[in-house]
Design a protein around this nucleic acid. Sequence first.
DNA 1: GTGGTCTAGACCACC
DNA 2: GTGGTCTAGACCACA
Lengths: 128, 128, 128, 128
Amino acid sequence: MLKIDAGSAVPVYEQLKRQIKLRIVSGRYPSDHRMLSIRQLASELTINPNTIAKVYRQLEGEGFLMSKTGSGFFVKLEKEQMGTTRRKLLAELTDEFISRVVELGFTPDELINTLSEKLERKSADDQT
Amino acid sequence: MLKIDAGSAVPVYEQLKRQIKLRIVSGRYPSDHRMLSIRQLASELTINPNTIAKVYRQLEGEGFLMSKTGSGFFVKLEKEQMGTTRRKLLAELTDEFISRVVELGFTPDELINTLSEKLERKSADDQT
Amino acid sequence: MLKIDAGSAVPVYEQLKRQIKLRIVSGRYPSDHRMLSIRQLASELTINPNTIAKVYRQLEGEGFLMSKTGSGFFVKLEKEQMGTTRRKLLAELTDEFISRVVELGFTPDELINTLSEKLERKSADDQT
Amino acid sequence: MLKIDAGSAVPVYEQLKRQIKLRIVSGRYPSDHRMLSIRQLASELTINPNTIAKVYRQLEGEGFLMSKTGSGFFVKLEKEQMGTTRRKLLAELTDEFISRVVELGFTPDELINTLSEKLERKSADDQT
DNA sequence: GTGGTCTAGACCACC
DNA sequence: GTGGTCTAGACCACA
């Protein structure tokens, strides 16, 4: 199930986009998978249909979905593209992270150390 | 000089806040340093004075600046706090980065590899 | 066989109409030719029968088909009309094309040049 | 002034997009030109602001406009890109035209003849 | 039933 | 003032 945090600063439509993109890229929604209809998803999430439509239309524009008027939205991403897209998303996030951190004047070593530390703590927490 | 990218998705006031915070935390603006007046800075950056005022007020709220009515804004951060604050900012950015990347289902190893790669390339580019 | 491209922006019923009209105008479906029944065609193309019915009804309205209740749809176009109709269709398409291109401020010469070029390339490709 | 034909089959937002794109591509709206605000344009055309917003957002997505929150939408297309974009639009329209006409089984010669004829008539009419 | 367009109007952040 | 998000609901075309 998709989940929306109404209190978040991130707009609802952006939260939805990320989650759906994620499921497509990870293969959970395979190519040609039929998405829930705008109205269905809207009522399940108690969100206005227009907001869902916006999400679907944008994902269509980005090449993840395809609309067939009268029959619904369908996942479009080819299997071969999945890995590429996933890596592309990672690269974008990493670049953004680096540029912001470098601004603070940290050295690459400090950066990697902090990251490793946090990841270790995290995996320890997850096991607990 | 502070620089604003009008085309950026990041709001002007946010760009300004980051840059000023950075200069304070790195010691470039020492404690008791007098900031440019709202009007001066506004005209230098050709930005609305209200925006500058908002930035100064928020930095005051976060403990980086102090206003003395009638004579302007002054840097407030003590030397001892500098390192702490810097590390705190790094920790925040790192946490945010990790949580978003973990969503994509990448392993810690992949993450560190990608990051190291990008940092190496970057340092190579910088030397050129 | 008629072919439907489900992914196309052109609605299914429009694709069908064009193809059938084409076959009538080109003489491939002669006058009094009996069209496939709505159900047959619908199952062959795996398309909703309502859509086929709509197509037949519209073609009837435009004078290409004739329905005989209880026995199906029949091609109605007389041989003499074929050439006229074909030319009329071309004229419509050409007019629409010209008006949209003129909007962009291109001169008649530019237009004809681009068109000739593309046609030459096309015939070259087709031979390959 | 931009003009909307409410009775047309072409959606309002599509009519608007074409006209604005046209003016940008033809240089009538130069780079950095500030567009009318969403609300202003909406009231001038007696159209809902949401519709204008949709148009502007889509043109932003296609690289013709840029939004600066709080100060408006600005034309983004560089001079160098103008010619290219204009030619690209022509190429698209021409390709679509050819493919639809070829379906009808006309020869390239017939096609060019019809087009030339119509253009001649048109220029004669325009002089009258 | 599906998506697509459009309206009306609220509330927010930004400048 | 500006754009950005979201809601509510109408009406249409398509399958």
